[in-house]
Amino acid sequence: MTTDQAKEKGKALILPLAVLLAFEAWARATHLQSDSLAPPSEIILALAGAFADFSILTATRDTLFSAFAGLAIGTVIGLALGIAFGISDTLNRLMEVTVEAIRPIPSIALLPIALIALGFGYRMEIVIVAFACVWPILILSRAAVRSIEPRLMEVSRALRLPAAQRVWKIIIPAALPRIFVAFRLSAGIALIVAVTVEIAINPLGLGAGIMLAQQALRPDLMLAYLVWIGVIGYALNILLVVAQHRLFGRAALSGDSA
């Protein structure tokens, strides 16, 4: 890192630090008594407490388990459909109306259906996350397959590869960088949907934890959960961006605008 970059980073930190300090000072000066706000020092203590009794770790595990299980299912389905639609224009055109009719349903609207069909718990959350993840993966992998260099497809035809091998040896490797971008976007969506389902109704994970803290009138704990959910979201994003650069380097950038 050059000194200039370090300086930029330093400047970026000034505002959040100033806000936190000002808030802390204000809360102490006025002896803040509130159901919705707590000074940063108490938030940190509450976070430490939630770590000490493992409650926040259990909640994190539950949320991430649901999010990743849904993401995995959604990715498999979305990828299978996306590749099929990308290879066969006929299939794509025939399915267009069906896809466009189902896709705009907000994932969270499925919540009551999942609730009566599956009850509370992991399963309903995973189903909703999977539904939400299918569409971005489908759309982006379809576009990725279509943009494969036509000469690669010609080679596979010349080699007379059977369909399964054509997908496995030519299409997936060629489209992988852009598929990974889709996966990265979907991972963010998966976390958001999982937390939202938990906040709305499912008594599980981080979303339920933050709702419980609110109902228990523990603003420090509630904000501690909020901070922690933010940290998880941020860490997941960074992790996947780094993975993308490591695995694919510049190749992935071409699909980033999609």
Binding site: E8, I192, V195, I199, A200, M211, Q214, G233, Y234
Partner: peptide
């Protein structure tokens, strides 16, 4: 852009629904 925008970028990946309990408390 130098002082404020990075903080906003940092907040972006936060699942916005997590703000709901805070809003309910307020």
């Amino acid at each position: 852009r130098t002082y404020v925008a990075p903080s906003l970028e940092f907040l972006r990946p936060l699942p916005v629904s997590a703000i709901i309990p805070v809003a309910i408390a307020m």
